[in-house]
């Protein structure tokens, strides 16, 4: 894994998140208030208080490979209630970003693909165009599910049917906009973010056409946004579990 030898990636996870404003992490006394208020614990493999502890203990791979960081809905209940003022919701954000930066295979690839499709749409138009974004996401998710064996053809077909049903129901009610709403200053948007503009590789590859290019890794970059899943599969794939 080439990426793990670079400076930022080899830094212990605790140091990385502390550098980005989560020094408070050290104050956690495992009261579990975060976990008890979290609405998504039923779908998590590590409870929020365990995530905090695992980061402190240096269990970086366990944390970055967890479902928890992706099924967290960012509802901010934990951060609101923590008696030690630890922003656990922000910790989850930083862990998602570290997962991408270090190219650890995400336990919930669909969630990553969704976020990428969403930001791709933002970078292309300056605003989200739901129909385009959903189509791209769906295609990428179905394709990656098939390829990784997470889905067989029958499930694929059921999914497609479900989506078509919902799509039609929404279309019929005129809930979907047919044309994107675009802004003028798109170039301003493309310059944003933590990495150089190739960063927003979703937007760039999309402008070129097929949705498959989003996950086929044509636009390698060191960015956090643009890392394509194919890179994870190609390089780090299989090493995590």
């Amino acid at each position: 894994m080439a990426s793990l030898s670079t400076g930022v990636a080899s830094m212990p996870l605790q140091t990385a998140v502390e550098k980005r404003g989560l020094e408070a992490l050290r104050r956690c006394y495992q009261c579990r208030k975060c976990t008890n208020g979290c609405p998504l614990t039923f779908a998590m493999d590590l409870m929020p208080h365990q995530v905090v502890r695992a980061v402190q203990l240096g269990l970086d791979q366990e944390v970055l490979g967890s479902k928890t960081i992706w099924v967290c809905a960012a509802c901010q209940t934990c951060s609101t209630r923590c008696p030690n003022d630890i922003d656990i919701a922000h910790l989850m954000d930083l862990l998602r970003q570290e997962n991408r930066r270090r190219q650890v295979e995400p336990a919930e690839p669909e969630v990553v693909l969704f976020h990428q499709a969403f930001l791709g749409s933002v970078c292309r138009h300056g605003r989200v165009f739901e129909v385009g974004m959903l189509a791209r996401y769906k295609w990428a998710a179905l394709w990656s599910g098939l390829r990784k064996g997470r889905q067989n053809l029958k499930q694929f077909a059921i999914q497609l049917w479900q989506d078509a049903r919902l799509g039609w129901a929404m279309f019929r009610r005129r809930r979907l906009r047919i044309w994107p709403s675009r802004i003028h200053a798109k170039d301003q948007i493309r310059r944003m973010g933590s990495a150089p503009s190739e960063n927003l590789s979703l937007a760039r590859s999309d402008a070129g056409g097929s949705g498959v290019s989003e996950i086929s890794g044509q636009n390698r970059s060191t960015s956090s946004v643009g890392d394509s899943l194919a890179d994870d599969y190609g390089q780090a794939g299989g090493t995590q579990r």
Binding site: D93, F114, G126, G193
Partner: peptide, 20 residues
């Protein structure tokens, strides 16, 4: 000419983009 606020996707993948 307002632009998208980035919603949960931006702060999930890139703190700085989210605020920008």
């Amino acid at each position: 000419d307002w632009n998208c606020c980035g919603a949960s996707s931006a702060h999930s993948l890139d703190d700085q983009l989210a605020v920008d």
